[in-house]
Design a protein around this nucleic acid. Structure first.
Lengths: 220, 220
DNA sequence: GTCTATACACCGATAGAC
DNA sequence: GTCTATCGGTGTATAGAC
């Protein structure tokens, strides 16, 4: 943002290190379940230093959400299908989502928590509109963009008659839920599928299963 | 449990009232996000009285989970399909799940949190086995039963060639995720579908959409 | 930018009167 | 079964030295 020639990853400074450790903690314990003392000791700084980099805990949490959403957005945008058919685009989107979440252990849990929580954030006012009174936060803009692109994919597929005329909102919730819960389910997921959910074999099977399941569910 | 002739719902005593209020609070704020003081004031008791009924906050939380799971289990078991075909059983199961969650606002959120959290509970040791050292809690037994029945439904459908030979564990996670996220998504869900997620129209459409989506995803 | 020291509200939990 | 009073600890956040 404020580094004019930043394309390459910089050497991690204290701020980055705080964000990284906080991400794991928030994913594991949720917003209210993490204390600044605990975080400070794991980062190796004093508690006061945390408040130098982030004025409040809520600011820190918003930055963590923005960081993980930016990685997810980059992962989804990097996937280019071979053709522009809705099926190919849908498959590429699912593959990219699974791939991205599989390489980013805290991401699934963090996202699921953010989607379910109304607190500490009033649930992502995606379209604040003129009279809402509040400006959207950075991570809200990112989430709106991600969901908007998927919505566009579904709409064009339906328009072309490739997908069934499903309810787009319902379908977004169904697809997101089926993709994310797996990577957010921890021990329960491991028990259900019989191996670690982030193992190579489990991820590759997940990709195939989800692709088949969702394609069949949507195709006309 | 300790009322020999209890078939009818009793008049709600303090314990029931605590559980009911706590359920809403835990669903909204998660385990760590709720304080016993806040709960006590909302119930209309002193904090100490809470500890008379439940020795620790964790015991209270376990009781809340058990209570909501018992309602879900009852809702799922009450649905009897007209025939014993796997398609009919699956449809009946989905209808019952949607119906139950739609009539029980805190349930979806509470369940989603319980599935994602490893803390405060070490994630539902569904099959503790002989050497696990720990006895399963009441709500774990209930969840294992619910998931086990759905697993049996899928297995018999696959065996009869009605369903595709999907990975059962993956499919359970996909189906559960797509069903629950909708009812746990709060404001975000409302924005996505354009109306309150618990409104009659939204619930009825949800039932149809999920039924179609999942049936098509699974049928051979 | 990092530290020590501190402020003060709230945390879960207990003791003991009624 | 409910209450008041209290415990030690932790919550976020700030002041001010270096």
């Amino acid at each position: 943002m404020d580094d004019p020639q930043s394309e390459m990853p910089r050497a991690p400074d204290s701020r980055d290190k705080i964000l990284e450790v906080a991400e794991g903690l928030f994913a594991y314990g949720g917003y209210a379940g993490v204390g600044m003392r605990q975080l400070a000791s794991m980062v190796g700084l004093s508690k006061s230093s945390l408040f130098h980099h982030f004025p409040t805990k809520l600011d820190l949490y918003a930055s963590v959400l923005d960081r993980v959403l930016s990685r997810i957005e980059a992962g989804l945008d990097g996937a280019r299908p071979r053709t522009d058919s809705p099926e190919a685009r849908l498959t590429a989107w699912i593959d990219a989502a699974v791939q991205t979440l599989s390489e980013d252990v805290p991401a699934g849990r963090l996202m699921m928590r953010a989607l379910v929580d109304e607190e500490p954030f009033p649930a992502l006012e995606l379209k604040p509109g003129p009279g809402s009174g509040r400006e959207p936060m950075s991570f809200e803009v990112r989430l709106a963009r991600i969901l908007g692109r998927f919505e566009g994919l579904l709409a064009s597929g339906i328009e072309q008659g490739v997908f069934r005329p499903v309810s787009i909102g319902d379908t977004i919730l169904s697809v997101i839920g089926s993709i994310i819960l797996h990577f957010a389910s921890g021990d329960l997921g491991e028990i259900l599928i019989g191996e670690p959910i982030f193992s190579g074999a489990a991820v590759e099977r997940r990709r195939r299963e989800l692709s088949e399941f969702i394609q069949r569910g949507l195709l006309a």
